[in-house]
Design a protein around this nucleic acid. Sequence first.
DNA 1: TTTGACTAACCAACCGGTTGGTATGTAACA
DNA 2: TGTTACATACCAACCGGTTGGTTAGTCAAA
Lengths: 224, 224
Amino acid sequence: MSSPDSSSRGTGRRSRDPEATRSALIEATVDLILRQGFAATSVGEICKQAGVTKGSFFHHFESKDAIGQAAIEWWGNFGTALYEEAWKDSGRDPLEHIGDLFSIMEGFTLDENRVCTCVVGIMSQETAQSNESLREMAARELERWTENAGRLIAAAKERHCPDADFDPEDVAWHLNSVWQGSMLIGKTIRNPSVIRRNLCMSREWLAGLFPDGVRSLLFSKQTN
Amino acid sequence: MSSPDSSSRGTGRRSRDPEATRSALIEATVDLILRQGFAATSVGEICKQAGVTKGSFFHHFESKDAIGQAAIEWWGNFGTALYEEAWKDSGRDPLEHIGDLFSIMEGFTLDENRVCTCVVGIMSQETAQSNESLREMAARELERWTENAGRLIAAAKERHCPDADFDPEDVAWHLNSVWQGSMLIGKTIRNPSVIRRNLCMSREWLAGLFPDGVRSLLFSKQTN
DNA sequence: TTTGACTAACCAACCGGTTGGTATGTAACA
DNA sequence: TGTTACATACCAACCGGTTGGTTAGTCAAA
């Protein structure tokens, strides 16, 4: 749970390393949001977990909201790294990239040491109607994911069936909704396998939108 | 915003009507959960909105958790009433019932006076990992919805394509995930039309699981 | 190379207000 | 008269945020 690393020491002054302090605070916030939500997390708790005093906290962040924003941003970057293989332009068939995307999501559900849930989804649920600035950041991250997925789907459509009757952006929103809804349900019924089954069905559905001949590209193993 | 009904009076003693008091408290809680979440809602706020004092609150509910449970239960009953047309056994083709289900969800997104969101989804997100009793109640409601939908899908499969290669319960979980995920995303990007587009795509996908001949049953207008 | 002025990082103690919850009293109904 | 429904007044603990002050690093002048 609490890592005995150099960033937190039981007693005495913290070493003077502002970036490490900032990171420790943000990472503690992300962890606490994932475990109990943002509203239920107090600044004192964040400080305790990061091994930082409250005075120091408010030197780095002007408010609790501010670290909420930083946490969303941190999670956004974490996601960008996680999905790198899918988002990056490799010259391979875009359908294969979509296959990578599914594989990455599937992989995310398989980590035994972490409950499969999402800072952006949690912050969305909690702040969408009560905190405009946090809502806006969460929305931006949701849109970023959808744009990336939509770009892949549009490219695959352009290449394989430009006249097919579906809108890539709509399909991307559907996929994002399945993803968010599955994580929400998976953690609530304490059964992450429902997430994988949903991803499997969505992948199958997506495959059905493309011609039979290229269908297998969506299911090819990730070349890493 | 605040309804000037008989349940709240500015000054003086509240009329002696324990059931009305209880209802007022629960309905205030549901409303506040929908607008700002459970953790961000205080008992004082609930009391103020319901026109009840705190002493009275703790006469009816032994803790904040307890009214959280009551709110989930209230929402569950609200849902049962909302979906009645779809869940009830009418002798009509089960595929038509599934069509009703989609129409009801679609209708739920269309109310201009209410943001399309769900107490169960909110409570799931907030409590799944930090409050076992609330998590369990939310999970039970998610399972109830899925069982009802799954029963319809299973009946439709039995009648129209008993040998088809899909599991009705899996499909029902997928549908529930799309529903929850769509509401989450719809309110965050402030665009409920994404929910309707997602429902439309899921309906189309479901139709594709059944033989062409019966497809239209899923799209027939609700006979009410 | 020392010194000293300046700044950013950090800290313990504290602030007014709010939290979930309680103790106690009172009025209405059976 | 006893029980239930309500109200008032209160509590310790905690909330987000501020205070005034200490310490460590930077850099320029001597």
